[in-house]
């Protein structure tokens, strides 16, 4: 039996193991779940090391291609070791320095990048004219209605989250309209998520039919 066929058997048993949870919580599911946990821990750590830590830290301070070492990179390595000192209670406070550098630096990058790359483009998209004057209006009804709906939805949603005014009268009605738009958005998000999960489920059935029944068991399907 080749490693490929053994792999298909392992994958099939694990698929059934996890799927057995649909019946109820059982030892087979728990075994598959704990295999998943162990493999995911090992996989995550390994990939992060080879993909990120080695090229961005180790190869820079100890270059193997003859280039000059970057001594400044020793600072994050030492700060990283401080993070690991959290396991020693008397020295755990040193990890605060590392977290301060990490969080502080990240926040410094975040302020201008969120404003320039996220907030401003969204504002610019919200401040577009409803129609193009260079083209006849009759040909633009679809985009015009769409753009008007976006504008009303954005404004009404913002009003719903605006608590400096009491939600009564016109503001109350606008806020209620905002809730309806939020519900449409959540419903659409929900439907989208369900369909994404369904496609994963179809993928598992395809694996069972094509790979397990077809290749591992040699059955002719269809």
């Amino acid at each position: 039996m080749s490693w490929e066929i053994i792999g298909i058997w392992v994958a099939t048993l694990l698929t059934f193991g996890i799927a057995s949870f649909l019946y109820k919580d059982n030892p087979v599911y728990k075994i598959a779940e704990h295999i998943y946990l162990g493999v995911a821990l090992g996989y995550g750590l390994t990939i992060y090391f080879w993909d990120s830590i080695k090229p961005n830290a180790i190869d820079k301070v100890l270059p193997s291609d003859g280039s000059a070492p970057e001594y400044l990179v020793w600072i994050p390595i030492v700060l990283g070791l401080f993070i690991l000192l959290r396991v020693i209670p008397s020295l755990a406070w040193l990890s605060r320095w590392s977290f301060a550098v990490y969080i502080g630096g990240n926040m410094g990058i975040l302020v201008p990048s969120v404003i320039a790359n996220l907030l401003m483009p969204q504002l610019a998209s919200a401040m577009r004219p409803l129609y193009d004057t260079a083209q006849p209006l009759n040909a633009q009804w679809g985009p015009l209605i769409g753009q008007a709906v976006i504008l009303i939805a954005t404004f009404a949603t913002m009003i719903y989250f605006f608590f400096s005014l009491e939600h009564r009268g016109f503001v109350g009605k606008l806020s209620r309209l905002g809730v309806l738009f939020i519900m449409i958005s959540f419903g659409a998000g929900f439907g989208y998520t369900v369909m994404a999960r369904m496609s994963l489920l179809i993928g598992r059935f395809q694996f069972l039919i094509i790979d397990f029944f077809g290749r591992a068991l040699g059955l002719r399907i269809g």
């Binding site: 995550g44 830590i53 961005n56 994050p76 990283g80 993070i83 590392s98 990490y102």
Partner: peptide
């Protein structure tokens, strides 16, 4: 280098 190394140590 800095953020990736620190995040890596947090992961470890």
């Amino acid at each position: 280098s800095w953020l990736i190394t620190l995040a890596g140590c947090a992961l470890i």
